[in-house]
Write a protein that binds this DNA or RNA. Sequence first.
DNA 1: GAATTAAATTGGTATAGACAACTATACTTT
DNA 2: AAAGTATAGTTGTCTATACCAATTTAATTC
Lengths: 242, 242
Amino acid sequence: MINKNTPIPIYYQLQEQLRNKIEAGELKPGTPLPSERDMSETYNISRMTVRQALNNLMNEGLLTRIKGKGTFVAEKKIEQPLMKLTGFSEDMRMRGIEPGSKLISFKVVDAEDGVAKQLGIEPRAEVYQISRLRLGDGDPMAYEVSYLIKDRLPGLSEKHLEGSLYDYIEKSLGLAIHRARQTIEPSFATKLEAELLTIDEGAPVLLLERTTFLSDDSTVEYVKSVYRGDRYKFITEMKREG
Amino acid sequence: MINKNTPIPIYYQLQEQLRNKIEAGELKPGTPLPSERDMSETYNISRMTVRQALNNLMNEGLLTRIKGKGTFVAEKKIEQPLMKLTGFSEDMRMRGIEPGSKLISFKVVDAEDGVAKQLGIEPRAEVYQISRLRLGDGDPMAYEVSYLIKDRLPGLSEKHLEGSLYDYIEKSLGLAIHRARQTIEPSFATKLEAELLTIDEGAPVLLLERTTFLSDDSTVEYVKSVYRGDRYKFITEMKREG
DNA sequence: GAATTAAATTGGTATAGACAACTATACTTT
DNA sequence: AAAGTATAGTTGTCTATACCAATTTAATTC
C-alpha cells in the first residue's frame, strides 16, 4: 500500500489513499479509522507520519478526531455559505425544503413611482410584473411580486420562470448578477395575503424588499415578498471584519 | 515569552503570540519570521513544536512558507466581507443615527435550556444576563437581552458595557470574534416590550436572535432582541457567490 | 447484580535527531 | 564574463520515543 522508494512523501500517499476511500464511499461517514498506532504498525511508518496525513484530512473537514475514542470519517459537510445571494428556490433547497412555485399573474405594466425609484428608471416606464406564490414542500411560504425592466429583457416570457430566472438574466444580458440590497420588516397579513398563504388575516409576516444589481451596478429586478412568519425564519450568517 | 508550566500547549502559546503580532501590525505582510531553528533555540522548544504552531497559522492563511527561503507573513486577504458583523451601536452609526443604551438589569443567572443550547453549554450553567434598552437618537429602538458564558468572562461587570463589549471579549479571551448566526422573524409586541419601546401592545416587531462565535468556533454570546417594526428595518447587502 | 477501580486504548503534545530538497551566496574554474 | 561548485541556511519529511488526557473496557469489590 505504501511505497517508501518513491519521491512521493509517505504521509501524502496515505492521505490520498484515505481520501479516495472516503470519496468512493468505501469509508462511510461515522465509521472509525484504525487507530494511529495501528496504521503506524501495519504500514511500518512512524505514528507522526500517520498524524501528518490525518491532520491534513482533518483540516479539510473529511475527518473528525475524538480524544480517547478514535478518528472518524466526518459527516457530510453542510458548508454554510455566508450570505449568498440566492433566489427563493435556492434558499429553500439549502434548508432542505423542496421549493415550488405557482404563477398568479404575468403582465407588463407601467411602473409605479415606488417601483420606478427602486429600479432607477423613469416613472411609468414599462416593467414586467410577476406575481407568484412560493411553496415549500407544497405549502405556501411566501407571496412574491417581482418587477423587471422590460427594456433590458425584451424577450422574457412565462416559460423562463420555470428555470432559474437569475441564470436567464445573466445569459441574456451577458452580465453577472452581482449584489442585492434587501430590507426586512415585520407586518401583518392583509386579507389577500392571508388567503394566499392560508394564514389568518393579521398574522405576523415578514415584508421583504429586494433590489438586485448587475456587475455594472445597473438594476434589473425589484422584488417585494411577504413571508409567513409562522413557517419562515430569515437566517443570516455574518463574518466580522475582513 | 513561552511558559512551559501551564496546561496551555506550547505550540498554542507561540501560535497565538505570532497571531497577535500579525494582527496588531507588528509583523507586516511580507516580512520573514525567524527560521524554525531560530525560534526552536530562542524559546528552547523543539523544532517540531514550532512547526505545529506555524502549520496552524499557515492553514489559516496568515503565513506563507517557501522551501529553502523561509516563512513569511501572508499578504492581507481580500476576502469580501459579505455581511459585516456589527453590534447595535455600529449598526446605528452606519445608518447615521446616534446610538444610546439604557441598562435595565445585569445579573448572573442559571441558563435556561434554550439559552444553554444556543451557547452549547450545560443547562443551568451560570451566564450573565444583560437586559438593555437600545436607543436611536434618544428614542427606544430595541429591547435586547444578552447572555454571556460566565466561565469565559469571569471579570465582566457593568462598566464594560459602556465601551464596545466585543472589543472587551476579544481582548480578555485573546480570541477574535469571528462569525455570527442570526435569525429574524416577525412577532407582536408583548405588554412589557410595548411599554419599554413606547409602542402599542401587539404592534409588529422583529424578533432577532443571534449567536456569536469566536475564531475557534466556541460560542460566547447569545442575544435575543426585539426591534420595533415601525422604526427599524433590517438591511442586508448580499453578494452573489463567494 | 451494581458500583467502583484498574488497566488498556485512543488521540494530544513534545522531544531530539536525521536526511532530503531547495535557495542564496561566495568561490572556483573555464 | 560565464558557468560550475561548494557551502550554509532554509523548509519538508520522517523516525523513535515519551508522557499526558480522555475514553472505553475489564477486573475487582461490595
